[in-house]
Simulated assay, not measured.
Amino acid sequence: MKELQFLGIGSAFNTELGNTSAFIKEGKSLLLIDCGGTIFHRLKELNMFSGVKDISVIITHTHPDHAGSLGEVIFYAYYILNIKAKIYFPNEKFIKTFFGTVGVSDEMYIMNGKSNISIEIDNIGMVGLQFVESNHVETLPSFGFIMKLDGKNIYYSGDTNNVNPLIVEKLENGELDIVYHDTSGLDFEKYSHTSFRKIKEAFRKELREKVYCMHLDEHISKQEIINSGFNVVRRYNKV
């Protein structure tokens, strides 16, 4: 089974764990979810671009820890690998404005702004994407998404300040197999991330083995998460 692996699992300020970004690499294809400021360096460090002829990048929002090195990935693909990265984000006008501020021109990438799409990626296969708006900050459009991959239905929250009741319902009903969720040790009114208290309140104990906590800040320990029956995503290290 093809599954998501993580280049980093931390929040913006948790430099020890790196920016949260997931990936699948199969053959000549690389699929990325988010591309924060530390991610291009990690991709180079791990030699992830070796042999790659197809790069697809799903973006949840454009905060620096999620899109800070997206421009570098596009430049590297265009100038060094001689390919155009494919970018998936359901607000095409907004992200094109973002690209304009970092010098990425239209001819350097292929854009898809649909909120519901099926993608065929060589070596990876069909990937279904259904974007879901998230409550993160008022200043940026932010999204999570449901991904259909290799016979599994996966929810990836991106950054959000709550647990979407629809996602809980889908997990309860067996419509989702795995949930990857933004998780914070901080808990105060109008915070932009999901507190661990909210995570525990949303998912009953019988479902917690299907929930993977990510985007961890320095205010929560992996052991605390595991002791409550949840999983913690692992940071990929090349063998």
Rank of each mutant, 00 (worst) to 15 (best):
I121E: 03
K190T: 15
E169G: 04
I225R: 00
I83D: 01
I80W: 00
M147P: 03
E201D: 14
N237L: 15
I9Y: 04
K114D: 15
H181A: 10
K152Q: 13
T97Q: 12
S50Q: 15
T139L: 12
I178T: 14
V137A: 02
L186Y: 01
I167T: 07
P90V: 11
N112D: 15
Y212M: 09
S184T: 15
Y191Q: 15
I33T: 08
F203P: 06
E3L: 09
I117P: 00
V239T: 13
S50C: 10
C213D: 04
T183G: 01
G229T: 12
H181R: 13
D159C: 08
E206V: 13
K152P: 00
K152F: 01
T101M: 09
Y88N: 05
A85D: 00
N237T: 14
L70G: 05
I95Q: 02
F49N: 06
F75S: 12
K96H: 05
C35Q: 08
I154C: 01
H193I: 13
E107R: 10
A22G: 12
G71T: 09
T139K: 11
Y155S: 03
E133C: 06
T62G: 02
D54P: 04
H136W: 11
T139H: 02
N112I: 11
E206K: 13
K152D: 08
L46K: 14
L207C: 05
Y79E: 14
E72Y: 00
F94Q: 07
F99K: 03
I95N: 05
N161Q: 11
F98M: 14
F143S: 07
I33Y: 04
H66G: 04
N47C: 10
V52C: 03
D177Q: 10
E172D: 11
V233N: 03
G113R: 00
E107A: 02
E169W: 01
Y88C: 08
G125L: 10
L166G: 10
L17G: 03
I9P: 00
N82C: 09
Q130F: 07
G185F: 02
N14D: 13
M147H: 02
E175T: 08
G10S: 08
H219W: 10
D187M: 07
K210F: 01
T97E: 15
L4G: 01
K53D: 12
L81R: 05
L46Y: 09
K170S: 11
D65R: 02
M214A: 11
Q130S: 14
I154V: 14
E120R: 11
I55N: 05
C35A: 14
K170G: 03
N82R: 15
N135L: 13
L129E: 02
V104T: 01
G185M: 10
L129P: 01
N161F: 07
L149A: 01
M108K: 07
F131V: 13
L176D: 08
H41P: 02
F188K: 11
F13M: 13
S50L: 14
I24S: 01
E224I: 10
T38C: 04
D217R: 02
L81T: 07
K84F: 04
M147F: 02
M111G: 02
D54M: 05
G144S: 07
I110K: 06
N135K: 15
H61N: 15
